[in-house]
Amino acid sequence: MRKVSWGLILVLIVGLILAACAAPVAAPAGGGQAAATEAAAEAESAGPIRVALLMPSTINDISWSQSMYVSLKELQDELGADKLEIAYSENMFNVPDAAAAIRDYASSGYNLVIAHGAQYGDSLMDIAPDFPDVSFAWGTTTRTGKDQGIENIFAYEPRGDQAGYVTGVLAAKLTKSKIIGLVGPVDAGDAKLHVDGFLAGVKATDPDVKVNVSFTGSFGDTALAAEAANTHIRAGADVLTGSAQQVVGAIGVAKENGVPWLGVQADQSTAAPEIVLASAIYDWTQLLRDIIAMREAGTMGGEVLQLTYANGGIRTIYSDALPAEAVEAAKAAEAGLADGSITIVVEPR
């Protein structure tokens, strides 16, 4: 009996949908391939460049996703909302969901789809060839798929190790106890890059300084990140750093104990301005400008772009509370990384 009633529900709903589909309703989503290309062509001629952004976390994670969203917004303010249109999807941690969203954006007239996470790469390689008029971008990676004949994917790579290096120099200059605590999420990807750079920066500045590294095993475990910060402080650390959205917990503890915090990726000073003494932020605006310019010049993809100190894609924001000598050393490191006189040596941990 239950089976029958469920069947009825199904029939009813499918019937409703079919009836609805028959009616000429202008729904922005859905629609076939033909409609999509039309929409794309229309958007192209109409003027504004339409950018879609997919993120694994949220636009207010004060790290990875926020940095990209903020840059897009800044660019929009600069160009005007009539020239740049933004759409975004958050919390796309599940890759197949993200793949569906990428396809949807591509088929509903967006000109540039940014898949802001390395895990989306393989889906992108599948999807991009179906939409030659749309550009795609993803990172952290150097893979554009050009070797497979795909021409419309940009790859980007923020040099997290550079951001980590400068932060490391700064930390080594700031510490008096010669112990620094690092609160990481998971020892992989961008977080690993940051840790490696940080260790190299500390070592290059003062080989006697010890960096205690801990990982919480997740990107969102704020409570454990807080306790990790507590542990670092008890173990003698007088400067703390870390990455991912979980760090808000650690920053709270740093604030309570008056221990300086050095942020990465996004400007983390909102969380506690008095102790977040520097943030090595990812500024994507120039990279986005470059991609848009290349598109307009007819290059749909195939290029690898980097965020570095050299191209201004990574900037460190220094607080006034920092000692001048420490800032100088960090700025020297920035310059050295920019002109190539400093190379980062990653040692196995």
């Binding site: 969102g220 920053i251 604030k255 506690a272």
Partner: peptide, 9 residues
């Protein structure tokens, strides 16, 4: 403990 709120903290 944390003095902040974060999504799904």
């Amino acid at each position: 403990l944390l003095n902040i709120f974060q999504e799904n903290m």
